[in-house]
Design a binder for these strands. Structure first.
Lengths: 345, 345
DNA sequence: ATTCCGCGCGTTATCGCACACGCAATTTAG
DNA sequence: CTAAATTGCGTGTGCGATAACGCGCGGAAT
């Protein structure tokens, strides 16, 4: 618990000098600078965060670039909840956030949000980006000023200068789903996997993981179907198609938050035979289907914690100037009827 | 973001007076006290925690009464890790902890730890108790001074004046285990449940939950065995007994952290037939058996987070004087080979 | 009447850090 | 060669709250 003052005494200088060394504000001779630095590391000096943020005049602003909260079946409300929680906890540390929403199915909307953000970029100290529209995001990244650090949430763009990625290991989450499906289905038969257009690397990765688990397994027949997310009721239609085309259907894997739509159809029009359904994310509709048994497992990627952590990592990187891990992978929680209650809220 | 000074100005008094009102230090006339209180609630004044703990002279000390870390297969290291993490984060807030360990199989050792704690009770501001030895703990509770708040970790003693309990819903965790076992075992046969002596309510609850799930299910034969924890290699012996007595054995449920001992035996002497094993807690030995497939599922009760949270709740209750929920139930994480990596560390 | 005590309040130092400012001693420019 | 700029350093103030201290006033005790 060394203080600035102690450092100063030891180095035979004033606190002002030590402060200048720490903040690289110059006006210190090379000799004293080295002496001070040595003593700082000798005493393992850590600035008192309380005092620091108490005296700090600057407030930090982070821009949040994410899809409209209600998209993906209100999925985006979950990370936003975490973001708000982090924001309120970091309020005393003078951290504010500024939201820029976009329609994840419209590049134009995305570009609108980006340009709004760029207009006030001078007031921002860091960005949180959910790069759902990967190509459009890549273009946007080139326009971000070099001084401005950014972090990815939910999914990821390779070869960018982002300082960290907060999210899941999509491939492994596919593997996990496959394992669960394997345990569930006791009989031989067909398992359908529902892909989505427009393509999303993140989701594709889950599907790849799913297939990789079943790689050398022959008694289960894997069949891929593709829906177009811009149509109306796409999952309803595709589920209908799946059940009519496969008399030996035993399971459906929905590698996104839309499992509830599949379960809806099955519950209404296919109640006779048990079809196992595995999906993602603890959104309201999925939860109620998990409760009534028409969804068997939900994989949760700690969406709320993702939002929370990403703001905290921004705080660490920008305000505290600490090193942040370049990948922070959230646990893949297996949620079922019997442990759901502890994951809700 | 009202400050003391603003309150003072509005109430036409000095900050000293407002401070005296807030901390009930007297020397304020009834009239001004009410005026100040009114303005405080009008402006929804929340003290700045940073400034508060920066200026605070008092340091808070919490006593930790838990089993030796190495007991239960080093299980207790997990909550302790969380406790240490919380302690280091709360260091700037002037929070210290003081450990009192006991042997969970010796009432005498427990009483020793208690009396040590009571000797320095005047220096303590709160207690964290793992009431593994329930009767002995009940006796101890009567000796705790009324002024001293305490919180339970891991398990619980009813009708006590503890301000909160941090842990799992043991019954429901048994239910969850049963559900998983039900999915795993496809054939008919016997599932063995291993109880422990001396009895532990917590563990018994898990077993009750397990049975309740299978209540009206007849194609699985449930059989209870009991080990004596004070013997040497008890699980080794009991597993041997189980496999020799049940030719139709298909699964074993170990409602505590000792599943690895069961798995040890099976891997060495019973490699031929697949026996499904479900156990608890991410201790090192269990983890390696999960990896090599001799344990199928581990239920994790977020042991590290339990420790972390319990210190934070003490901080909230004692230092911030905020209300704390009387029960904080941790999620029951289902851990398998495929998602283990995200729960490790 | 003087001393004394307690009440009701204001004042001020302190916590550890950030940052603006000021003041010599030098260096650079004109 | 003098004025201006720059370097190297110390001082002082503020952030918001805590808590010790001090002071006037009035009533009780001597």
């Amino acid at each position: 618990m060394a203080t600035l003052k102690e450092i100063a005494n030891r180095a035979h200088v004033s606190v002002g000098t030590v402060d200048r060394v720490i903040h690289r504000r110059g006006r210190v001779s090379l000799e004293t600078e080295q002496r001070v630095k040595r003593i700082i590391s000798e005493l393992d000096y850590k600035p008192n965060i309380l005092a620091r943020s108490l005296s700090m005049t600057k407030t930090f602003r982070f821009g949040i670039l994410v899809p409209f909260p209600e998209q993906d079946g209100h999925y985006w409300e979950l990370p936003l909840k975490g973001i708000e929680k982090a924001q309120s906890e970091l309020d005393v540390y003078k951290v504010k956030v500024k939201y820029f929403y976009y329609d994840k199915y419209s590049e134009q909307s995305f570009e609108m949000a980006c340009s709004k953000m760029l207009q006030m970029v001078r007031e921002l100290d860091g960005l949180l980006i959910a790069p759902v529209l990967s190509q459009a995001t890549e273009k946007f990244l080139t326009k971000i000023p070099d001084r401005l650090p950014y972090i990815f949430l939910d999914s990821y763009i390779p070869n960018s200068r982002c300082f960290s990625y907060i999210g899941e290991d999509s491939f492994q989450s596919g593997v996990l789903s496959a394992k669960l499906m394997r345990i569930l289905v006791t009989a031989h038969g067909t398992v359908a996997i529902i892909k989505v257009q427009p393509m999303d690397y993140h989701i594709e990765d889950r599907v790849r993981g799913f297939f990789s688990y079943f790689n050398n397994n022959t008694d289960i027949n894997l069949l891929t179907y593709t829906v177009n997310a811009r149509e109306s009721m796409p999952y309803y239609k595709i589920t209908k198609k799946i059940v009519t085309e496969n008399s030996d259907l035993i399971g459906i894997y929905t590698p996104n938050a839309c499992a509830y739509q599949v379960a809806d159809y099955l519950a209404e029009h296919f109640a006779g035979k048990k079809i196992f359904v595995i999906g993602y994310d603890l959104i309201k509709e999925n939860i109620s289907h998990l409760k009534n048994g028409s969804i068997d497992f939900l994989i949760s990627q700690r969406s709320e914690m993702q939002g929370y952590e990403s703001i905290f990592k921004l705080y660490k990187q920008v305000v505290l100037k600490e090193k942040v891990e370049s990948r922070v992978l959230m646990p893949l929680d297996i949620v079922t009827k019997e442990n759901l209650q502890f994951y809700e809220n």
